[in-house]
Simulated assay, not measured.
Amino acid sequence: MAEWTVRKASLWQDAVRLLLLLDAAAEPIGEDSEVPTGAVGVVYTQVRLQKLDFWVRNPDYLANELLNDYEADPESPGLVDEAERILTSEEPDLRRFPMLRHRFGAFEQLDNALSVLVEKGLARKRHRLGDTRVIQHDYYLLDQGRVIAASLITEAPALVWYVERTRTVVNLVNGVGGTRIKERQYLQRDYADTPIGSHIPPITQQVRARLTTLRQASAAEAGFTEVVQ
């Protein structure tokens, strides 16, 4: 395997990415007596938030999943084109911030970035307690967080990329829970075979080769159809 560099995001980058991911992924709040004041949406479970974050931080894995969905349903519009936009750009290298593989897949402590959002009144985290331990973490986007997420794009147009990618990631698994997303990510062998405690490696070249194969197959099929007609 070729050597690759493990890049670390700054605290500011982590906080902005997390805010924009919460803005894209937060779902309406149901009946709940313990909702924080000013909450406008929620991401239920740390597992879901971590797995969505993995795809934002690893565009080559996201492109691979878009190709998986295309092969499952070739009539789905735009999947190959979106994967191609990712893979033919420098995005897989410039935007990659690898995550460690833990027992339950990709993971990184979110507390430092989240503390920035909490301090500014943009988000809140709530623990759900079982008999003896915390059984779930829920992440609430506050009204001010939604306002700031929108203003960031106006003030820093370069952040539009994060808006686009977080929406792509959320649309990929809309309505799917964190455990199901975790199981899906484990189907990618490079991900699953990464030793626990090691950074999950890039798969950019493999996915680019896969895209080329799919494009060639599509072109050959189109050519055959024209001859038959």
Rank of each mutant, 00 (worst) to 15 (best):
L62N: 02
L62D: 02
L62M: 03
A63R: 07
A63V: 07
N64Y: 08
N64V: 00
N64H: 08
E65K: 01
L66W: 06
N68Q: 08
D69N: 04
Y70V: 01
A72N: 09
A72M: 06
A72V: 00
D73L: 07
D73W: 01
D73F: 02
P77W: 03
P77Q: 06
L79S: 03
L79W: 02
V80S: 04
V80K: 02
V80L: 08
D81I: 05
D81V: 05
A83T: 07
E84T: 12
E84P: 00
R85S: 12
R85W: 01
I86F: 05
T88N: 11
T88A: 10
E90S: 11
E90Y: 07
E91S: 09
E91K: 06
E91L: 11
E91V: 14
P92N: 05
D93I: 13
D93P: 00
L94E: 14
R95N: 12
R95H: 13
F97W: 09
M99G: 03
M99K: 00
L100C: 02
L100K: 15
R101N: 05
R101T: 01
H102A: 10
H102M: 14
F104N: 07
F104L: 09
A106Y: 09
F107R: 05
F107K: 05
Q109L: 13
L110G: 01
L110M: 13
D111R: 11
D111M: 08
N112C: 05
N112L: 15
A113Q: 05
A113W: 04
A113F: 03
A113H: 03
A113K: 02
L114S: 07
S115K: 12
V116E: 14
L117V: 04
L117H: 04
V118Y: 02
E119S: 12
E119Q: 11
K120S: 10
L122N: 01
R124L: 05
K125G: 04
K125L: 09
K125R: 12
K125T: 13
R126T: 14
R126Y: 00
R126S: 06
R126M: 06
H127K: 13
R128A: 07
R128Y: 11
L129N: 13
D131E: 14
T132C: 12
T132V: 15
V134S: 08
I135V: 15
I135W: 08
I135C: 07
I135E: 15
Q136G: 10
D138K: 04
D138P: 01
D138L: 11
D138A: 12
Y139L: 04
Y140C: 05
Y140M: 09
Y140K: 03
L141Y: 08
D143P: 00
D143S: 12
Q144M: 09
R146M: 06
R146A: 15
I148M: 10
A150V: 15
L152E: 07
L152R: 01
I153E: 12
I153P: 01
I153L: 15
T154F: 13
E155V: 12
E155M: 14
E155I: 12
